[in-house]
Design a protein around this nucleic acid. Structure first.
Lengths: 155, 155
DNA sequence: TTCAAAATCACCCTAAAGTATGAGCCCGGA
DNA sequence: TCCGGGCTCATACTTTAGGGTGATTTTGAA
């Protein structure tokens, strides 16, 4: 957010500076060189071309790219032998404790029961589960368990 | 393709016309009105602003919208075919509707979503789920799903 | 040592899940 | 015809889950 504003301000400042420099240049030309009155149009044209280019450049720089989300199917094998898919765990960024909570969730325990099993408070389990849901991009514990099993994170 | 070219030419012509008109206007002003020499900068500024706007407009009109393709992975289970363990279902005494509800539960759906999927009210789903829990002798939906999978009642 | 992430816990509030009870409708079997 | 089971829905209530925020402590890596 802050960076974006900075970038925009940078461009605005740059733009203002360009204008100022151009005007100074014109003034200088007016004072130091012989300006034929008939050459007005040339200057006008030059300015027009320059600022058109600047406008185009600005537009190209400032327009946000449109994002298109393409779903890519990934097939998951769920053979009889279970081994924790460590790669998936790391990809999701799940910590040890979060994984513990997810496993106990998958066993059908309530948050209260999980907290008793792990010797921590109910609030702690709520925090962990919330983080799990956030990282796995799900809304409910049932979905988290579903996904966890598919990804071989839990048996 | 042809239409595209036509459109581009149209814009180019329009652009050229704009420039010509502007120059004519300036010439006219120069000839017919009193132009204070000190007002140069004002005209320059006006031209700059106008052509910058024109450039931005041109860029926005002519460029194809920038697209960034983001691949989102969707995990799909392609395990061996699943066959319902009918014997277990009968042993538990689960009705067809109760089995439907259990299956959708296993997919991580909320009671609300299940009710919408089956075109019945939320209360009906609550009744079904309560009966499922009673028949399966579990306390929570997560436990029901766990047991259902173990008994091969659901995939 | 210092810094960031992980882990812990609390409080408040809303949403969802689950419990209990009652009731109406439909269908197939006794 | 009557009965029971399955399915539907409702109301009222309690419990659990989940969201949001903020705080403290622990710990591991730079």
């Amino acid at each position: 957010m802050a960076k974006n504003l900075l970038a925009k301000n940078k461009l605005t400042i740059l733009y203002g500076l360009c204008l100022a420099v151009l005007l100074l240049l014109l003034k200088w030309l007016e004072l130091k060189l012989v300006i034929v009155n008939n050459a007005y149009e040339v200057y006008m044209g030059a300015i027009a071309v320059f600022f058109t280019a600047l406008g185009i450049w600005l537009a190209l720089k400032l327009t946000k790219p449109k994002t298109v989300i393409v779903e890519k199917q990934v097939y998951v094998n769920n053979g009889p032998e279970f081994t924790v898919n460590q790669a998936e765990v790391e990809k999701l960024g799940l910590s040890k404790r979060e994984l513990d909570v997810l496993q106990l969730m998958a066993e059908g325990l309530s948050n209260q029961e999980i907290s008793e099993r792990l010797f921590v408070s109910l609030n702690t389990i709520k925090t962990h589960s919330a983080k799990v849901f956030e990282k796995m991009e799900v809304k409910r514990r049932t979905q988290a368990v579903e996904m966890g099993k598919r990804l071989c994170i839990i048996p």
